[in-house]
Computed example of a mutant assay.
Amino acid sequence: MTSESLQPQGAPARRTVVTAVGATGLALGLGACGSDEQPSSGAGTGTADDGGSGGGAAGSGGVLARTADIPEGGGKVFAAQGVVVTQPVKGRFEAFSSTCTHQGCAVNRVADGVISCPCHRSEFSAADGSVRKGPATRPLPAKKISVAGEEIRLA
Rank of each mutant, 00 (worst) to 15 (best):
G82C: 03
P118C: 06
G61C: 09
S60Y: 06
V85S: 09
L140T: 04
T137W: 02
R109I: 00
H102L: 03
T24M: 13
V83A: 06
A155Q: 15
V85R: 01
A11S: 15
S5E: 14
A80E: 14
D49E: 13
A23C: 09
T137E: 14
G34E: 10
Q9R: 12
E37P: 00
E94P: 04
E37D: 12
A68W: 07
F96E: 00
T99F: 03
E4L: 08
A65L: 14
T47M: 09
G149T: 04
G74S: 13
V18N: 09
S116P: 00
A127G: 05
V77R: 01
V114T: 09
P12Q: 11
A23T: 13
L64W: 05
G73I: 03
V114I: 12
E72T: 15
P71E: 06
G54R: 08
V17D: 13
P118L: 07
P12R: 12
V77S: 00
S116K: 02
C119K: 05
G73V: 06
V18W: 11
C117V: 01
K143Y: 03
E4P: 03
V17G: 09
D69N: 07
P39Y: 10
I115E: 00
S125M: 10
A80D: 15
P88N: 06
T67V: 15
G74T: 00
A79E: 10
A155H: 06
P139T: 01
A58H: 02
S5Q: 11
R132G: 08
V18E: 14
P12E: 14
F96C: 05
P71Y: 09
S53Y: 07
R15Q: 14
L64P: 03
A13Y: 11
Q81V: 07
G25V: 14
G56M: 11
A127S: 12
Q81M: 11
S122N: 11
A11R: 13
Q103H: 08
S5Y: 01
H120Q: 15
D50W: 02
A106T: 06
K133R: 15
L30C: 12
R132Y: 01
L30G: 12
A127E: 14
P88F: 04
A58R: 02
A80W: 02
G62H: 08
G91V: 13
V114L: 00
T137L: 10
P139L: 00
T2M: 05
T101L: 10
I152C: 04
S60E: 15
G62Y: 04
Q87F: 03
P139V: 01
H120M: 13
E72G: 02
G29R: 11
S3R: 12
C33A: 10
C119Q: 12
T67Y: 07
